[in-house]
Design a protein around this nucleic acid. Structure first.
Lengths: 102, 102
DNA sequence: TGACTATTTCGCATTATTGCGAAATATTGA
DNA sequence: TCAATATTTCGCAATAATGCGAAATAGTCA
């Protein structure tokens, strides 16, 4: 059982456009190899690899090596839900009336 | 209507222990003055004030001045839900079996 | 074994974040 | 108007994050 990672550390792991893009790519439960994620991010391999290690250290994703390739998958599906909530058009209502994430 | 703030910017706003603490203090829909939040964070006034401006710029909280004091409230309740999810003990299961945020 | 492929690690330069204290701003009440 | 209170803004120093390319590592296959 991994050590408990505090919420702000999870947020920190997600506080980057490329890392959110990785989460998006993995949303739905599928796996992607690093090559796919590099293509999706539009950044260098070494950069994406480090982003992946940040997400993995935070417990957001997990990896599995098969042959030459490493495949990543999402381990924290609620992140997907939350991102979807953040993208609803009705995102800025008053607390009382909010339909966001409910 | 404020400009749409991308998810990673929301995550960035929450990527700090003090700012998450502020969100916690405001969870439930109540208001708090800056003095309360300074006490809750255990940091200097100027530091907390800047944290509040970061959260406000991200659309996570809103402020209202009444008399000498400024009161803050949460505008994005799904953040509370997400934090609660992150704190569930069953946070690190496999994607398939996860009960997190469901 | 040796070449090839996929990925990670390292070191660097640039930029962003964090916390502080001092100073500025705004509101209230004598 | 003047002083007191509540909060924000500013400038600074220290630390962290970001992206890159080069080099290292690991697995596959001839």
């Amino acid at each position: 059982m991994p050590t408990k990672i505090p919420p702000h550390a999870i947020f920190r792991a997600l506080a980057n456009e490329a890392r959110v893009r990785v989460v998006r790519e993995l949303s739905g439960g599928g796996e992607k190899c690093v090559c796919d994620l590099v293509a999706a991010c539009g950044l260098g391999w070494s950069t994406v690899s480090r982003h992946l290690s940040v997400l993995k250290a935070a417990g957001v994703i997990a990896d599995e090596k098969r042959g030459l390739q490493v495949f990543y998958r999402l381990t924290l599906p609620c992140v997907t839900n939350f991102i979807q909530c953040l993208e609803k058009p009705s995102r800025y209502p008053d607390f009382q009336k909010s339909a966001c994430c409910r």
